[in-house]
Computed example of a mutant assay.
Amino acid sequence: MLTNLLVMVINTYAMILLLRIWMQWARTDFYNPLSQFVVKVTQPVIRPLRRVIPPLGPIDSASLLIAFLLLTLKYPLMELIISGGISLSLVNLLAGLVSLIKTAGSLIFWVVIIRSLLSWVTQGRGPMDYLLMQLTEPLMGPIRRILPALGGIDFSGMIIVIILYILDNFFANLNYIGTLWQLP
């Protein structure tokens, strides 16, 4: 029970950090309420590191480092809760990297799904719609140019979800990484 809570909290905060990176990369509207939430939740952790770690072009390296460290420490903390002991190794770094990639894929999945669902309800009129459009358009736009809307239905979100599903199955079936991919 406690390990599930730990995994949920760490994964959620890492996803928020990755969302901050994605929003900066896509140059989204930072006056949007969701953008303000993300900045306010991550700023106390990111601000001190920004003095030491400069950004790498459009990538916020401080946010990326914190997300990686959180996801790397997740497994030793789970081990500490379950068995009372802790072991640190290079496998934890690889598990953290794999978890970072998996979390980024989950973030893309959920943003695309939420955008698709909101497009049916609000039809692009709300501030959340505009932010989600700014985030997903670099991914969905090229697909939309190849496969235009058929009968008024945009299939680009579905194509991205299928690509993410294929990538998830590919990584899950790799020899060594597959076992790390299956970790929570």
Results as ranks from 00 to 15, higher is better:
V9Q: 07
T103Q: 06
T3Y: 05
R145K: 15
G141N: 04
S35R: 08
L80K: 07
R125D: 08
P54C: 11
F68R: 04
L77P: 00
L139Y: 03
Y75F: 11
W120N: 10
V7D: 05
I114P: 07
L2R: 07
V121T: 08
S99M: 00
I16K: 03
N32C: 09
G57E: 08
V9Y: 12
A67S: 02
L70S: 02
V39Q: 01
A62M: 13
S119D: 10
D129S: 05
L135T: 00
A95N: 04
F171C: 00
L69Y: 05
L118S: 15
V9F: 11
N4I: 00
T103Y: 04
M23S: 09
L167K: 07
P76E: 13
L97N: 06
P33M: 01
I86F: 09
L174R: 06
L132V: 10
E137Y: 12
I159T: 12
K74H: 05
L167F: 11
S87I: 15
I113Y: 13
L167T: 06
L19S: 02
T28Y: 11
L131W: 06
P142E: 06
L107P: 01
P184C: 12
I153Y: 09
I21A: 11
I113W: 05
L19A: 04
R27V: 00
M15E: 04
T3N: 04
